[in-house]
Design a protein around this nucleic acid. Structure first.
Lengths: 160, 160
DNA sequence: TTCATAATTGTTATAATATAACGTATTTTG
DNA sequence: CAAAATACGTTATATTATAACAATTATGAA
């Protein structure tokens, strides 16, 4: 399971994410076109969220003809619809989903120093959100849980 | 205590919010200027979040000279700093804080139909967020918990 | 009070994020 | 292959937010 905080060969993360995306899309009959796959790869370039215009810029460095914003946003929309990436509304940025395919309401731990962001599925959070909603007679359709602060690595760097 | 879902005379909510804001600012030596108070009143116009540019437009209907965006954003920043309003990042919009003064990490229930938004302090959520962060060695500085879905009133309207 | 300082607001310009609308090309399916 | 659907290209523009500097107003010390 992906943990952004431990040292790792990130190429594995990228390759694994792409493989899984191909497999999931195949199963669902969704078309993971070269453009969409490229955008997914760019989003997975690190464990930090990336903005749509940064994706656009990266894309521009690779292709002759510079892509336009709608091209990128459409690809991002596709990837979100199929649960391959998430949008972090507190940052206006996107990050690869660390466990696509599974139904989940994740919590994101966003480091305000190094920007590394860890996606967590925490049953206690899910349960308490449900409890909160139920107590109000509210029906949850979508949740956004984003915590910003300091990740263990940046915390450690302070004291060492 | 404010509950957005029950029928109520909303003027009371506004007046109460303004009174409390005046009192809190006085205590802290913060200057709740006429502009800032007016913006707070506009944010409190309803239990639905309002965008900065909507505040701007409302302000324009009242004043001769149309205010400019920085004027509104500065007032909103002041109000946020002093815990009088919240920004909902999933909507890029602002809502009056229903219990200013108290330290709290709220959860917002946003109705996607009528837009009415209820702020909830839920101890279970706070506890589980802390637990989640702690399990990762993450230090929370700020939290954003926004649930969108259907409020009890809109749910009821479907079945009736 | 009066001046100096700080805080607030005004003003202009622009940055950053996102989408509408329509045309073209490619893929899929009958 | 032809028709339809899907994806992508392109232009323009909407929406949200901030930088930079000028003018004004409030505050506090002498």
């Amino acid at each position: 399971m992906t943990n952004a905080y431990h040292p790792h060969n990130h190429k594995h993360c990228i390759e694994e994410a792409l493989q899984e995306a191909r497999s999931l899309c195949k199963d669902k009959g969704a078309r993971l076109t070269p453009l969409r796959e490229k955008v997914l790869e760019l989003v997975w370039q690190s464990h930090s969220p990336i903005g749509a215009y940064d994706v656009l810029a990266e894309l521009g460095r690779l292709e002759e003809r510079a892509a336009q914003p709608p091209t990128v946003y459409r690809a991002l929309d596709f990837l979100m619809e199929h649960g391959l990436i998430h949008r972090l509304s507190s940052l206006n940025a996107f990050i690869g989903c660390s466990h696509p395919g599974e139904q989940h309401n994740s919590c994101f731990l966003i480091c305000e120093k190094c920007r590394v962001t860890q996606e967590i599925e925490h049953l206690g959070i899910e349960a308490s959100l449900k409890d909160c909603a139920q107590s109000q007679g509210f029906q949850i359709k979508d949740s956004s849980v984003e915590l910003s602060g300091l990740c263990p690595n940046c915390l450690g760097a302070d004291t060492e």
